[in-house]
Design a protein around this nucleic acid. Structure first.
Lengths: 212, 212
DNA sequence: CCTACCGATCGGTAGG
DNA sequence: CCTACCGATCGGTAGG
């Protein structure tokens, strides 16, 4: 049953995945034809079908390789920081540097939602969930006191910060200019939002306004 | 130049839009055929083309009528509240009740991003932007002191809260159970995140943990 | 991995 | 002469 993969065959497979990836990002799944993919990777249609049993299996292969959620979590978990403040900012920076800020960064997720009704999230969940848990643990392990927020909600809101930043970038950034301090400002708002009052750092994010 | 629209014709047009909307939500744009749409609304293909010059114009008509961003903003702007706390929670509640919590709530936006490369956002922006500005003004007009956050960033993060909540709902809610206090917890985190320390309300969102 | 095709269906339009 | 639509079919392309 073990499939013997020749170097040449594996190379073709990778080229198909790469070609499909760039086409899916640009046009979505249904608007991308097998002919588009085969032309871009230099194979014939028949050649493509020696590596994949169907069009959807090409998409799942692309998803395995390029899913932004799978790509970004390990990079984020390498973040360093002695305080929660430093840790969250480093996580955010790694998130953006790991994904880039192109408009199509999240497109594979959108394709999955719109063109597959989220069918493949079932497979994705067990891969992403442990990484998300580890991220939450990194956060709650810090010394600064976090407000009483149910752990699932804390995790979900932390995860949501990712979408908040990227979605508003996709929709707003072509019309409104945002400089590169915006990400840090987003993180500051979240940080202030989850910390107990007495543990809010004073060195960051603007001076307090004392006139009530 | 003024087009005279008969009741019957306008009715057919609305039925096409409605049929297309439900099909686009389920399968996306390219996977939905004119035939699918015409069958669902009870017209022939030719009949559909008396109302629209092409398939894409059906999509833009659907977008005008059902765009979640356009639908939700006016509902949110009716929010009431004497404090920022009360105002934001009412805004959030109206947001969810105005859109519902189906998995496909944001699908029109995703279709736009993935299948049209965001082309139609250009037309959407002038419609949504003033409403977003008004929302920000409602927030900053309150008495409670908001931290020194650049106004565009405040607006973007407020807008982002919307995506944070819905995207994480789409991805997580089928696997993890979240009760209906989650939305309020999200708003609380944001509220704590933008308020000055001395103006943080103490009656809401968990008691302070005083042991440092 | 290619050439040569299949059943079916695509978006769009003809005359009436 | 208008609108709203019909049955039939156009040239091309889809996944396989």
């Amino acid at each position: 049953m073990a499939r013997h993969i020749t170097p040449k065959g594996e190379n073709s497979r990778q080229q198909i995945i790469q070609a499909a990836y760039s086409l899916f990002l640009k046009k979505g799944y249904h608007a991308t034809s097998i002919r588009d993919i085969s032309e871009r990777c230099g194979l014939t249609i028949g050649g493509v079908y020696t590596h994949f049993p169907g069009k959807e299996s090409i998409f799942t292969a692309v998803l395995d390789e390029y899913n932004p959620l799978l790509k970004v979590m390990p990079v984020m978990l390498e973040a360093q920081g002695d305080t929660l403040d430093a840790l969250l900012h480093d996580m955010a920076r790694r998130m953006v540097s790991g994904l880039g800020l192109q408009r199509d960064t999240l497109n594979l997720i959108f394709i999955e939602v719109v063109e597959f009704e989220g069918r493949h999230f079932e497979d994705l969940f067990p891969k992403v969930f442990p990484l998300l848990i580890e991220g939450i643990e990194r956060i709650t392990r810090q010394e600064q006191a976090i407000r009483q927020i149910p752990l699932p909600v804390l995790g979900r809101s932390f995860f949501g910060l990712f979408f908040s930043y990227f979605m508003t970038h996709i929709i707003l950034a072509r019309k409104l200019p945002f400089d590169d301090t915006t990400l840090d400002a987003f993180v500051d708002i979240y940080l202030y939002g989850i910390l107990e009052r007495q543990d809010i750092p004073s060195g960051n994010g603007g001076s307090p306004d004392m006139n009530g």
